[in-house]
Nucleic acid binder design. Structure first.
Lengths: 218, 218
DNA sequence: AAGATTCTATGATGCACCTCATAGACGTGC
DNA sequence: GCACGTCTATGAGGTGCATCATAGAATCTT
C-alpha cells in the first residue's frame, strides 16, 4: 500500500512528475496520533512536512499558565508546515491532534530537494506560503476586536472549511477566538437566541451567515 | 544621481549582478512623502516594492472608529511588501509615513522578473519572507498577554532596531501594543518609577533591558 | 448500571483596561 | 508675543471579560 495514490489527490503534489511523486511516496511515512498527542512541538527541528490523511490537527501556541490559542485547524488533504522546509528553521508552533488522526510525514530534506529541482513545484509552494502569510496577517488584526466579533469571524472562517455545521467543541472555539469557554458559551447562547446559530454538544451550526458577517465587520 | 549606489547598500539587492542592479535602478523612482501620508493603502494593487531611504514608515491596520494598530516599523534600508510582488495580489496593510520620508519604489513587474531569472535572488527574497512570517506568527501570540507585557515586548523589539533610545511618541507605542495612549503612559510612568526606562517627549529610553525581559516573559 | 469524565450552561464577583474629562508642557506658525 | 496643535500626564467612572463556583446533561469506562 504505497502513498502514491494519496499524494495524487493533494493539489500541491500534482505539480510533481509521476516519478518524482513516486519517489516522494517511498520516503514518506504514515503515522497515527491519538487525540491530544503532539505531531510536533514549537522549537522542534523540522524533520517533516505533514499532510493530514484522517482526523484533525490544530496548530497552536501555548502560553504560560496552560492557556492555549489555536491559530489554524488542518483537515484531511491539507498540508502544513512548509515554512520550516523552506528556511530549515524549527517549527514555529505546536501541532496537536485534536482527534485521533493519521498524518503523512514527508522528510523535509526530500521536500526541499524538490523545491530546488522543480520550479513549478516551487511556484505552487510559494503560493501556499503567500496565502498563509496573508491569513496570519489578517488574523493578527482581528485579535484585538471584541470577543463577539472574534467569535463571529472564527465561525465564518471555519464554515469555509467545514460547511455550515462546525464539528468543534465550545472549548475549541474558545481557543480559536482567544477567550474562555464560559464567555464563548455565553455569547453563543446569545447568538442562538437571536437565531443566528444552532448549537449542540460538540458542534455549532450557522443558520444566518449574514448576521454573523454583520457582527464581524460592523 | 542614479539609485545604483543606494541599491548597493541594501543587502537583498547585493545578490543581483551589477548590470541587473543598474537596470533596476533605472526603472525605480524616489518619492517624498509628508508625515501622515500613505505610501499605499490596504487593498491597493501592488505597483511597487518599497525601500525606505529616509524617514520612517509604519505598516498598519485601521479598524472601524478610527482605531489603528501598527504591526511593523520600517526604517532606512529596509525593504517592505515583497509579498505582493510574489503573489501579485493587493497590499495586505496600509503603509503610512510616520515622519517626512523618502521612499524608493521598485516596479513590481521588474522585481518579479528578477525573481524568475535569478535563483540566488529568489532564495534571498524567500528568506526575507520566511522571517516576516515567523515575526507575524510570533506577534500573534502576544494576544493573551497583559498590556504591560505587550509594551515591554514592543520596547525590546524596537530597541533592536533603534538601540536603547526609541524615537517614537507614546501614541505610536500605544498603536504598536494595541492599547490606548493613556494606558501606555500610565504603565510607562510606572516603569519609569522602577527605573527600568527613562521617558521624554517623543522618545523612550530603555535603562534596564533585563527588567523588561523579565516582564515580557514572566 | 454505576461511576468517571467531558461538555454545556449560568450566576456572582473582581479587575484590567477603556473612556471621558482636565490640564500642564512643549513646540510651531503667524 | 500670542494662539494653536501635539504630546504627556493623572483622576474618576464604567465595562467587557476573566475567574471562580456550581450543576446538569451527554458520553465513555469498567
Amino acid at each position: 500500500m504505497t502513498l502514491e495514490p494519496f499524494f495524487q489527490s493533494i493539489s500541491l503534489l500534482k505539480r510533481l512528475s509521476a516519478s518524482e511523486r513516486q519517489r516522494l511516496a517511498e520516503v514518506s511515512r504514515e503515522k497515527r496520533y491519538a487525540k491530544g498527542e503532539a505531531v510536533f512541538r514549537q522549537g522542534d527541528p523540522a524533520e517533516a512536512v505533514c499532510i493530514v490523511k484522517e482526523g484533525r490537527v490544530h496548530l497552536m501556541k501555548f502560553h504560560d499558565e496552560g492557556q492555549a490559542s489555536t491559530t489554524c485547524v488542518m483537515t484531511p488533504g491539507e498540508i502544513f508546515c512548509c515554512l520550516p522546509a523552506l528556511d530549515r528553521k524549527p517549527y514555529p508552533v505546536d501541532a496537536i491532534a485534536a482527534v485521533d488522526s493519521i498524518i503523512v510525514r514527508i522528510p523535509t530534506t526530500s521536500f526541499h530537494e524538490l523545491l530546488q529541482k522543480n520550479p513549478a513545484f516551487l511556484e505552487a509552494s510559494l503560493c501556499l506560503f503567500c496565502e498563509r502569510l496573508r491569513q496570519v496577517e489578517n488574523q493578527s488584526c482581528m485579535v484585538y476586536d471584541s470577543v463577539e466579533r472574534r467569535l463571529a469571524q472564527v465561525l465564518l472562517t471555519l464554515s469555509e472549511k467545514f460547511g455550515p455545521t462546525i464539528p468543534l467543541t465550545k472549548h475549541e472555539l474558545a481557543e480559536m477566538a482567544n477567550t474562555t469557554v464560559e464567555t464563548t458559551i455565553r455569547i453563543l447562547s446569545h447568538l442562538k437566541k437571536q437565531g443566528a446559530i444552532k448549537s449542540s454538544r460538540g458542534s455549532t451550526t450557522i443558520v444566518k451567515p449574514d448576521m454573523l458577517r454583520d457582527l464581524a465587520s460592523s
